[in-house]
Nucleic acid binder design. Sequence first.
DNA 1: ATTTATAAACTAATTTAATTAGTTTGTCAA
DNA 2: TTGACAAACTAATTAAATTAGTTTATAAAT
Lengths: 185, 185
Amino acid sequence: MARDLTKEKVVQKAAELANELGDVHQLKLKDLAAALDIKVPSLYNHVKGSAGLIDALRIHALSELSGILQDAMVGKISEEALVAAAQSYRTFAHANPGIYQLVIQAGEPGSEVERIGKNSLSFLLLILGSFGLQGDEALHVVRGFRSLLHGFVSLELAGGFGLDLDLDQSFERLIKDYISGIQNL
Amino acid sequence: MARDLTKEKVVQKAAELANELGDVHQLKLKDLAAALDIKVPSLYNHVKGSAGLIDALRIHALSELSGILQDAMVGKISEEALVAAAQSYRTFAHANPGIYQLVIQAGEPGSEVERIGKNSLSFLLLILGSFGLQGDEALHVVRGFRSLLHGFVSLELAGGFGLDLDLDQSFERLIKDYISGIQNL
DNA sequence: ATTTATAAACTAATTTAATTAGTTTGTCAA
DNA sequence: TTGACAAACTAATTAAATTAGTTTATAAAT
């Protein structure tokens, strides 16, 4: 046999399909195999079943998000950098509604996921330094910032906001209020 | 046949099992039926399959959360009321790790879920009034507050916080910073 | 040019879960 | 005592994931 199918192509296609479906758990191996024009058991040559596919998609999603955030922040400081990061985070979620949910889990010590997470963390800590935040102070704020980003976008993706009220404005206001809050120590 | 099994008992048991498992989607009808000492198809006399069970659990969870929040806020104003609501929200999530995730979806117009949501919303708007927030301003802040609560507790439940740093402190700090932020209009 | 090893496909069979159809049975009310 | 209904049951179907074992195409080694 030997077509030019690789793990990367399998994961890429799975990400596309999951994003079309809006939820990675809606994607069945049957659908993925069909899209790749192979039979289901052949997928096992590339990923360790559905659990292995999810793991691979998590790394795929995290790498992408991490890159996007760093691109958004590079060359900026303090408020401008945080606002740019927030906007990019939300844009990533909108563009990846199916796999977004995979980025929230912290990695096991020593894992690829942990490595990517630490990388983004150190970038954010650099920015928070420009606010005068250091040590545990800064770490608490990173947790807070992540919480509000994840909370907003996950509610948005889940259809959690029922009111007829502009979402962009709500998001902008949330980020502004929080940044304002961390400045009044 | 006719044992004294009711829909309420089915849902109650399902909630218990889901919370033990930590994720409602890990709960299989087989396990629920076994815990109730009936066969799987008999569950269909009480709920419309697994989708119907999820719907019922969502209403169960939302009602409980809504009651808890109102109890926490009643008789308090401004910052004190918001802090109490935040603590209760997080406590609810810790006590209900399996079904917590069901509370984030807004209800269809006319649904029970929408009714409960509107009820909690009006309560929160009352509190925000004591901050001088009204109209769309207040609605944006309700969205923000919900976002940070949901973001923090869902990251916490999903094992999203990897660092060895006190979670209670992170949460307290987040709430304080946000409340501080909405006061500097 | 032929053989051989390997990766990647395949078919077939199993397991688990949810669902539907159709049947039985116990309780309560007429 | 009969008749109706709710709630249980068994049996069969469907969907999905997985595992085992087999085939085949390519590419390297003789």
